[in-house]
Write a protein that binds this DNA or RNA. Structure first.
Lengths: 207, 207
DNA sequence: GTCTATAACTCGATAGAC
DNA sequence: GTCTATCGAGTTATAGAC
Protein backbone atom coordinates (compact mmCIF):
# COMPACT_ATOMS: atom_id res chain seq x y z
CA UNK A 1 0.00 0.00 0.00
CA UNK A 2 2.88 2.34 0.70
CA UNK A 3 4.31 1.83 -2.77
CA UNK A 4 1.04 2.76 -4.47
CA UNK A 5 0.77 6.17 -2.79
CA UNK A 6 4.22 7.68 -2.84
CA UNK A 7 2.86 11.21 -2.59
CA UNK A 8 1.01 10.49 0.67
CA UNK A 9 2.62 10.61 4.11
CA UNK A 10 2.87 7.38 6.08
CA UNK A 11 0.48 8.89 8.59
CA UNK A 12 -2.14 9.44 5.91
CA UNK A 13 -1.69 5.93 4.53
CA UNK A 14 -2.17 4.49 8.03
CA UNK A 15 -5.25 6.69 8.39
CA UNK A 16 -6.88 5.47 5.17
CA UNK A 17 -6.00 1.84 5.89
CA UNK A 18 -7.54 2.15 9.36
CA UNK A 19 -10.75 3.68 7.99
CA UNK A 20 -11.13 0.85 5.50
CA UNK A 21 -10.44 -1.92 8.02
CA UNK A 22 -12.49 -0.41 10.88
CA UNK A 23 -15.50 0.00 8.58
CA UNK A 24 -15.22 -3.56 7.26
CA UNK A 25 -14.29 -5.54 10.37
CA UNK A 26 -15.19 -3.12 13.16
CA UNK A 27 -12.91 -1.23 15.55
CA UNK A 28 -12.49 -4.17 17.95
CA UNK A 29 -12.27 -6.65 15.10
CA UNK A 30 -9.25 -4.81 13.64
CA UNK A 31 -5.82 -5.16 15.23
CA UNK A 32 -2.82 -2.87 14.90
CA UNK A 33 -1.19 -5.78 13.07
CA UNK A 34 -4.01 -5.80 10.50
CA UNK A 35 -3.43 -2.11 9.83
CA UNK A 36 0.37 -2.23 9.62
CA UNK A 37 0.26 -5.37 7.44
CA UNK A 38 -1.99 -3.51 5.01
CA UNK A 39 0.27 -0.46 5.05
CA UNK A 40 3.48 -2.47 4.76
CA UNK A 41 5.25 -1.40 7.96
CA UNK A 42 5.96 -3.12 11.28
CA UNK A 43 3.65 -2.59 14.25
CA UNK A 44 6.19 -0.59 16.16
CA UNK A 45 6.56 1.93 13.33
CA UNK A 46 2.93 2.90 13.67
CA UNK A 47 3.67 4.45 17.05
CA UNK A 48 5.80 7.11 15.35
CA UNK A 49 2.59 8.46 13.80
CA UNK A 50 -0.14 7.71 16.33
CA UNK A 51 -0.09 7.32 20.09
CA UNK A 52 -2.09 4.11 19.81
CA UNK A 53 -5.20 2.47 18.39
CA UNK A 54 -7.56 4.79 20.23
CA UNK A 55 -5.90 7.92 18.91
CA UNK A 56 -6.39 6.64 15.34
CA UNK A 57 -10.12 6.51 16.04
CA UNK A 58 -9.95 10.01 17.49
CA UNK A 59 -8.20 11.26 14.31
CA UNK A 60 -11.00 9.67 12.29
CA UNK A 61 -13.63 11.51 14.36
CA UNK A 62 -11.72 14.78 13.90
CA UNK A 63 -11.63 14.28 10.15
CA UNK A 64 -15.36 13.54 10.02
CA UNK A 65 -16.04 16.66 12.09
CA UNK A 66 -14.27 18.87 9.53
CA UNK A 67 -16.19 17.19 6.68
CA UNK A 68 -19.53 17.85 8.38
CA UNK A 69 -18.57 21.46 9.02
CA UNK A 70 -18.14 21.93 5.28
CA UNK A 71 -21.58 20.43 4.61
CA UNK A 72 -23.22 22.70 7.18
CA UNK A 73 -21.51 25.72 5.60
CA UNK A 74 -22.94 24.65 2.23
CA UNK A 75 -26.37 24.56 3.86
CA UNK A 76 -26.01 28.16 5.07
CA UNK A 77 -25.16 29.19 1.53
CA UNK A 78 -28.25 27.35 0.28
CA UNK A 79 -30.48 29.16 2.77
CA UNK A 80 -29.14 32.55 1.64
CA UNK A 81 -29.28 31.98 -2.12
CA UNK A 82 -32.60 30.14 -2.51
CA UNK A 83 -32.21 29.72 -6.27
CA UNK A 84 -34.45 26.70 -6.48
CA UNK A 85 -37.51 27.89 -8.47
CA UNK A 86 -39.23 24.58 -9.24
CA UNK A 87 -42.85 23.96 -8.15
CA UNK A 88 -42.55 20.16 -8.05
CA UNK A 89 -41.95 18.93 -4.48
CA UNK A 90 -39.88 15.89 -5.43
CA UNK A 91 -37.72 17.92 -7.82
CA UNK A 92 -37.26 20.64 -5.19
CA UNK A 93 -36.29 18.02 -2.63
CA UNK A 94 -33.74 16.30 -4.83
CA UNK A 95 -32.09 19.62 -5.69
CA UNK A 96 -32.02 20.66 -2.02
CA UNK A 97 -30.43 17.49 -0.70
CA UNK A 98 -27.86 17.47 -3.51
CA UNK A 99 -25.81 20.05 -1.59
CA UNK A 100 -25.38 17.57 1.20
CA UNK A 101 -24.99 14.43 -0.88
CA UNK A 102 -22.28 15.81 -3.16
CA UNK A 103 -20.14 16.51 -0.10
CA UNK A 104 -20.27 12.88 1.00
CA UNK A 105 -17.09 11.14 -0.15
CA UNK A 106 -16.70 7.35 0.07
CA UNK A 107 -14.38 8.03 3.00
CA UNK A 108 -17.05 9.99 4.88
CA UNK A 109 -19.47 7.15 4.28
CA UNK A 110 -17.03 4.55 5.61
CA UNK A 111 -16.41 6.68 8.69
CA UNK A 112 -20.15 6.98 9.28
CA UNK A 113 -20.31 3.20 9.22
CA UNK A 114 -17.52 2.98 11.83
CA UNK A 115 -19.26 5.46 14.12
CA UNK A 116 -22.65 3.75 13.82
CA UNK A 117 -21.11 0.36 14.62
CA UNK A 118 -19.34 1.72 17.69
CA UNK A 119 -21.96 4.10 19.09
CA UNK A 120 -23.60 1.58 21.42
CA UNK A 121 -20.30 0.79 23.15
CA UNK A 122 -18.22 3.96 22.82
CA UNK A 123 -19.48 7.19 24.40
CA UNK A 124 -17.36 9.41 22.12
CA UNK A 125 -18.85 7.83 19.00
CA UNK A 126 -22.34 8.03 20.50
CA UNK A 127 -21.98 11.73 21.28
CA UNK A 128 -20.51 12.40 17.85
CA UNK A 129 -23.39 10.62 16.15
CA UNK A 130 -26.09 12.46 18.11
CA UNK A 131 -24.48 15.92 18.30
CA UNK A 132 -22.81 16.16 14.90
CA UNK A 133 -24.11 13.67 12.35
CA UNK A 134 -27.73 13.44 13.43
CA UNK A 135 -27.91 17.15 14.25
CA UNK A 136 -26.56 18.19 10.82
CA UNK A 137 -28.99 15.87 9.06
CA UNK A 138 -31.90 17.23 11.08
CA UNK A 139 -30.84 20.80 10.30
CA UNK A 140 -30.78 20.13 6.56
CA UNK A 141 -34.08 18.27 6.47
CA UNK A 142 -36.04 20.67 8.70
CA UNK A 143 -34.69 23.66 6.72
CA UNK A 144 -35.90 22.19 3.44
CA UNK A 145 -39.27 21.15 4.84
CA UNK A 146 -39.84 24.62 6.28
CA UNK A 147 -39.15 26.23 2.91
CA UNK A 148 -41.51 23.77 1.24
CA UNK A 149 -44.19 24.49 3.82
CA UNK A 150 -43.91 28.25 3.13
CA UNK A 151 -44.20 27.61 -0.60
CA UNK A 152 -47.19 25.32 0.07
CA UNK A 153 -45.45 22.41 -1.57
CA UNK A 154 -46.30 20.32 1.50
CA UNK A 155 -49.20 20.51 3.98
CA UNK A 156 -49.01 21.89 7.48
CA UNK A 157 -47.49 19.28 9.77
CA UNK A 158 -45.07 18.70 12.66
CA UNK A 159 -41.85 19.50 10.80
CA UNK A 160 -39.59 18.15 13.53
CA UNK A 161 -41.28 14.74 13.60
CA UNK A 162 -41.61 14.56 9.83
CA UNK A 163 -37.89 15.28 9.48
CA UNK A 164 -37.13 12.57 12.05
CA UNK A 165 -39.23 10.06 10.14
CA UNK A 166 -37.47 10.94 6.90
CA UNK A 167 -34.09 10.39 8.55
CA UNK A 168 -35.23 7.10 10.10
CA UNK A 169 -36.28 5.96 6.63
CA UNK A 170 -33.00 6.98 5.05
CA UNK A 171 -31.01 5.30 7.80
CA UNK A 172 -33.11 2.13 7.53
CA UNK A 173 -32.59 2.04 3.78
CA UNK A 174 -28.84 2.54 4.19
CA UNK A 175 -28.59 -0.30 6.70
CA UNK A 176 -30.73 -2.62 4.58
CA UNK A 177 -28.78 -1.74 1.44
CA UNK A 178 -25.45 -2.46 3.10
CA UNK A 179 -26.78 -5.84 4.26
CA UNK A 180 -28.16 -6.63 0.81
CA UNK A 181 -24.89 -5.73 -0.88
CA UNK A 182 -23.05 -7.98 1.60
CA UNK A 183 -25.52 -10.71 0.59
CA UNK A 184 -24.73 -10.14 -3.08
CA UNK A 185 -27.43 -7.80 -4.39
CA UNK A 186 -26.54 -5.26 -7.12
CA UNK A 187 -26.02 -1.58 -6.15
CA UNK A 188 -28.23 -0.45 -9.07
CA UNK A 189 -31.33 -2.21 -7.72
CA UNK A 190 -30.58 -0.78 -4.30
CA UNK A 191 -30.26 2.78 -5.69
CA UNK A 192 -33.57 2.52 -7.57
CA UNK A 193 -35.30 1.35 -4.40
CA UNK A 194 -33.86 4.32 -2.49
CA UNK A 195 -35.14 6.82 -5.06
CA UNK A 196 -38.64 5.30 -5.06
CA UNK A 197 -38.86 5.47 -1.28
CA UNK A 198 -37.81 9.12 -1.18
CA UNK A 199 -40.34 10.03 -3.90
CA UNK A 200 -43.13 8.23 -2.06
CA UNK A 201 -42.29 9.92 1.23
CA UNK A 202 -42.23 13.45 -0.21
CA UNK A 203 -45.40 12.97 -2.25
CA UNK A 204 -47.32 11.84 0.82
CA UNK A 205 -46.72 15.22 2.50
CA UNK A 206 -49.18 16.96 0.13
CA UNK A 207 -52.82 15.85 0.03
CA UNK B 1 -25.14 -14.83 40.20
CA UNK B 2 -25.33 -18.57 40.75
CA UNK B 3 -26.50 -18.11 44.34
CA UNK B 4 -29.38 -15.87 43.29
CA UNK B 5 -30.93 -18.38 40.90
CA UNK B 6 -30.73 -21.74 42.64
CA UNK B 7 -33.60 -23.13 40.60
CA UNK B 8 -31.87 -22.49 37.27
CA UNK B 9 -29.30 -24.82 35.71
CA UNK B 10 -25.74 -23.56 35.36
CA UNK B 11 -26.19 -23.70 31.59
CA UNK B 12 -29.17 -21.36 31.80
CA UNK B 13 -27.33 -18.97 34.10
CA UNK B 14 -24.41 -18.86 31.64
CA UNK B 15 -26.90 -18.26 28.83
CA UNK B 16 -28.57 -15.29 30.56
CA UNK B 17 -25.24 -13.79 31.60
CA UNK B 18 -23.97 -14.06 28.03
CA UNK B 19 -27.09 -12.37 26.62
CA UNK B 20 -26.70 -9.47 29.04
CA UNK B 21 -22.99 -9.00 28.39
CA UNK B 22 -23.15 -9.49 24.61
CA UNK B 23 -25.95 -6.91 24.35
CA UNK B 24 -24.08 -4.39 26.50
CA UNK B 25 -20.49 -4.81 25.35
CA UNK B 26 -20.91 -6.63 22.04
CA UNK B 27 -19.95 -10.20 21.16
CA UNK B 28 -16.28 -9.39 20.50
CA UNK B 29 -16.14 -7.00 23.44
CA UNK B 30 -17.15 -9.79 25.83
CA UNK B 31 -14.66 -12.48 26.88
CA UNK B 32 -15.32 -15.94 28.27
CA UNK B 33 -13.72 -14.61 31.45
CA UNK B 34 -16.30 -11.79 31.64
CA UNK B 35 -19.11 -14.33 31.43
CA UNK B 36 -17.71 -16.81 33.95
CA UNK B 37 -16.80 -14.02 36.38
CA UNK B 38 -20.41 -12.85 36.26
CA UNK B 39 -21.72 -16.39 36.73
CA UNK B 40 -19.26 -17.20 39.48
CA UNK B 41 -17.47 -20.19 37.95
CA UNK B 42 -14.03 -20.73 36.45
CA UNK B 43 -13.44 -20.43 32.71
CA UNK B 44 -12.83 -24.13 32.30
CA UNK B 45 -16.19 -25.02 33.86
CA UNK B 46 -18.03 -23.23 31.08
CA UNK B 47 -16.82 -25.85 28.62
CA UNK B 48 -18.91 -28.48 30.41
CA UNK B 49 -22.01 -26.61 29.22
CA UNK B 50 -21.01 -25.06 25.89
CA UNK B 51 -18.47 -26.10 23.29
CA UNK B 52 -17.11 -22.54 23.16
CA UNK B 53 -17.95 -18.90 22.75
CA UNK B 54 -19.40 -19.34 19.28
CA UNK B 55 -21.78 -22.07 20.40
CA UNK B 56 -23.18 -19.73 23.06
CA UNK B 57 -24.06 -17.26 20.28
CA UNK B 58 -25.62 -20.13 18.30
CA UNK B 59 -27.73 -21.09 21.34
CA UNK B 60 -28.86 -17.46 21.57
CA UNK B 61 -29.92 -17.48 17.90
CA UNK B 62 -31.79 -20.77 18.44
CA UNK B 63 -33.64 -19.26 21.40
CA UNK B 64 -34.59 -16.17 19.39
CA UNK B 65 -35.81 -18.37 16.55
CA UNK B 66 -38.24 -20.19 18.85
CA UNK B 67 -39.48 -16.87 20.26
CA UNK B 68 -40.18 -15.51 16.76
CA UNK B 69 -41.97 -18.74 15.80
CA UNK B 70 -44.39 -18.13 18.66
CA UNK B 71 -45.03 -14.56 17.48
CA UNK B 72 -45.69 -15.72 13.90
CA UNK B 73 -48.12 -18.36 15.18
CA UNK B 74 -49.95 -15.62 17.09
CA UNK B 75 -50.18 -13.67 13.83
CA UNK B 76 -51.84 -16.64 12.07
CA UNK B 77 -54.37 -16.77 14.86
CA UNK B 78 -55.03 -13.05 14.43
CA UNK B 79 -55.61 -13.43 10.69
CA UNK B 80 -58.16 -16.19 11.29
CA UNK B 81 -60.10 -14.57 14.11
CA UNK B 82 -60.33 -10.94 12.95
CA UNK B 83 -62.11 -9.76 16.11
CA UNK B 84 -60.98 -6.16 15.79
CA UNK B 85 -64.16 -4.19 15.03
CA UNK B 86 -62.98 -0.62 15.57
CA UNK B 87 -63.23 1.98 12.78
CA UNK B 88 -60.39 4.18 14.04
CA UNK B 89 -57.14 3.44 12.16
CA UNK B 90 -54.80 4.24 15.07
CA UNK B 91 -56.86 2.17 17.50
CA UNK B 92 -56.99 -0.71 15.01
CA UNK B 93 -53.25 -0.51 14.52
CA UNK B 94 -52.41 -0.51 18.21
CA UNK B 95 -54.65 -3.53 18.82
CA UNK B 96 -53.13 -5.38 15.85
CA UNK B 97 -49.51 -4.86 16.83
CA UNK B 98 -50.23 -5.79 20.47
CA UNK B 99 -50.08 -9.47 19.53
CA UNK B 100 -46.49 -9.03 18.50
CA UNK B 101 -45.42 -6.61 21.19
CA UNK B 102 -46.71 -8.66 24.11
CA UNK B 103 -44.51 -11.55 22.99
CA UNK B 104 -41.37 -9.45 23.18
CA UNK B 105 -39.65 -10.17 26.49
CA UNK B 106 -36.69 -8.07 27.70
CA UNK B 107 -34.53 -11.07 26.78
CA UNK B 108 -35.78 -11.07 23.18
CA UNK B 109 -35.06 -7.35 22.98
CA UNK B 110 -31.50 -7.81 24.26
CA UNK B 111 -30.93 -10.61 21.76
CA UNK B 112 -32.20 -8.39 18.94
CA UNK B 113 -29.61 -5.83 20.01
CA UNK B 114 -26.85 -8.47 19.86
CA UNK B 115 -27.88 -9.59 16.38
CA UNK B 116 -28.14 -6.03 15.04
CA UNK B 117 -24.70 -5.20 16.41
CA UNK B 118 -23.15 -8.29 14.82
CA UNK B 119 -24.97 -8.41 11.49
CA UNK B 120 -22.40 -6.38 9.53
CA UNK B 121 -19.58 -8.74 10.50
CA UNK B 122 -21.23 -12.12 11.07
CA UNK B 123 -23.05 -13.82 8.17
CA UNK B 124 -25.18 -16.00 10.48
CA UNK B 125 -26.48 -12.95 12.33
CA UNK B 126 -27.07 -11.12 9.05
CA UNK B 127 -29.08 -13.99 7.60
CA UNK B 128 -31.03 -14.36 10.83
CA UNK B 129 -31.88 -10.66 10.86
CA UNK B 130 -33.03 -10.59 7.22
CA UNK B 131 -34.75 -13.98 7.02
CA UNK B 132 -36.32 -14.24 10.46
CA UNK B 133 -36.58 -10.92 12.29
CA UNK B 134 -37.15 -8.56 9.36
CA UNK B 135 -39.32 -11.08 7.51
CA UNK B 136 -41.60 -11.61 10.53
CA UNK B 137 -41.95 -7.87 11.05
CA UNK B 138 -42.80 -7.34 7.38
CA UNK B 139 -45.37 -10.13 7.52
CA UNK B 140 -47.13 -8.57 10.49
CA UNK B 141 -47.12 -5.04 9.11
CA UNK B 142 -48.20 -5.92 5.55
CA UNK B 143 -50.98 -8.16 6.91
CA UNK B 144 -52.38 -5.35 9.03
CA UNK B 145 -52.07 -2.74 6.26
CA UNK B 146 -53.85 -5.04 3.80
CA UNK B 147 -56.75 -5.51 6.20
CA UNK B 148 -56.95 -1.73 6.75
CA UNK B 149 -56.89 -1.14 3.01
CA UNK B 150 -59.83 -3.53 2.54
CA UNK B 151 -61.76 -1.76 5.27
CA UNK B 152 -60.86 1.61 3.69
CA UNK B 153 -59.16 2.77 6.85
CA UNK B 154 -56.16 3.76 4.72
CA UNK B 155 -55.87 4.91 1.09
CA UNK B 156 -54.67 2.80 -1.81
CA UNK B 157 -50.86 2.70 -1.76
CA UNK B 158 -47.81 0.47 -2.25
CA UNK B 159 -48.29 -1.71 0.83
CA UNK B 160 -44.85 -3.30 0.61
CA UNK B 161 -43.04 0.07 0.58
CA UNK B 162 -45.31 1.59 3.20
CA UNK B 163 -44.64 -1.37 5.49
CA UNK B 164 -40.89 -0.99 4.89
CA UNK B 165 -41.07 2.70 5.80
CA UNK B 166 -42.99 1.91 8.98
CA UNK B 167 -40.34 -0.62 9.98
CA UNK B 168 -37.52 1.82 9.16
CA UNK B 169 -39.21 4.36 11.43
CA UNK B 170 -39.66 1.88 14.26
CA UNK B 171 -36.07 0.71 13.95
CA UNK B 172 -34.79 4.28 13.86
CA UNK B 173 -36.79 5.15 16.96
CA UNK B 174 -35.49 2.07 18.77
CA UNK B 175 -31.88 2.94 17.95
CA UNK B 176 -32.36 6.58 18.94
CA UNK B 177 -34.13 5.60 22.15
CA UNK B 178 -31.36 3.20 23.15
CA UNK B 179 -28.79 5.93 22.55
CA UNK B 180 -30.83 8.47 24.50
CA UNK B 181 -31.26 6.10 27.43
CA UNK B 182 -27.49 5.47 27.40
CA UNK B 183 -27.11 9.27 27.51
CA UNK B 184 -29.42 9.49 30.53
CA UNK B 185 -32.88 10.30 29.13
CA UNK B 186 -35.95 8.88 30.88
CA UNK B 187 -37.75 5.88 29.33
CA UNK B 188 -41.14 7.60 29.81
CA UNK B 189 -40.27 10.50 27.49
CA UNK B 190 -38.94 8.02 24.98
CA UNK B 191 -42.15 5.94 25.12
CA UNK B 192 -44.35 9.01 24.58
CA UNK B 193 -42.29 10.01 21.54
CA UNK B 194 -42.66 6.51 20.09
CA UNK B 195 -46.46 6.61 20.44
CA UNK B 196 -46.70 10.04 18.81
CA UNK B 197 -44.62 8.92 15.83
CA UNK B 198 -46.72 5.80 15.26
CA UNK B 199 -49.94 7.85 15.46
CA UNK B 200 -48.62 10.39 12.97
CA UNK B 201 -47.52 7.69 10.54
CA UNK B 202 -50.85 5.84 10.55
CA UNK B 203 -52.93 9.01 10.27
CA UNK B 204 -50.99 10.14 7.21
CA UNK B 205 -52.12 7.03 5.29
CA UNK B 206 -55.71 8.38 5.00
CA UNK B 207 -56.39 11.65 3.23
C1' DG C 1 11.44 6.87 10.58
C1' DT C 2 11.92 2.14 10.36
C1' DC C 3 13.47 -1.85 12.17
C1' DT C 4 14.22 -6.15 15.70
C1' DA C 5 13.21 -7.81 19.98
C1' DT C 6 10.43 -8.25 23.65
C1' DA C 7 7.53 -6.89 27.58
C1' DA C 8 3.10 -7.39 29.65
C1' DC C 9 -1.13 -8.82 29.07
C1' DT C 10 -5.66 -11.07 27.43
C1' DC C 11 -7.75 -14.34 24.60
C1' DG C 12 -10.16 -19.04 23.90
C1' DA C 13 -9.41 -23.59 25.02
C1' DT C 14 -7.56 -28.18 27.22
C1' DA C 15 -5.64 -31.76 30.63
C1' DG C 16 -6.25 -33.89 34.58
C1' DA C 17 -7.08 -33.98 39.84
C1' DC C 18 -10.93 -34.01 42.97
C1' DG D 1 -19.51 -30.66 37.39
C1' DT D 2 -16.06 -27.87 39.31
C1' DC D 3 -11.60 -26.90 40.14
C1' DT D 4 -6.14 -25.71 39.37
C1' DA D 5 -2.77 -25.24 36.15
C1' DT D 6 -1.31 -24.31 31.85
C1' DC D 7 -0.99 -23.76 26.80
C1' DG D 8 -0.40 -21.31 22.39
C1' DA D 9 -1.85 -17.62 19.94
C1' DG D 10 -2.92 -12.92 19.64
C1' DT D 11 -3.10 -8.20 21.65
C1' DT D 12 -1.17 -3.20 22.43
C1' DA D 13 2.81 -1.00 23.39
C1' DT D 14 7.90 0.11 24.41
C1' DA D 15 13.20 0.04 24.24
C1' DG D 16 16.93 0.57 21.69
C1' DA D 17 19.85 -0.40 17.37
C1' DC D 18 20.37 1.39 12.71
Amino acid sequence: MRNINKNLSTRDIIFYAAVELFSQKGYHGTSIRDITRKVGIKESSLYNHFQGKESILQAILDYQMSEFSKAVDALELLKASNTNKTKDPVEFWMAGTEVFIKNISPLTESISQIIINEMFFNADCRKFYLNVMRKSEMELVTTLFNVMKEKEMIDDCDIEKTASQYIYMLQGLEIENKLKILEGETPEKVRKNLFEHITMFIKRLKK
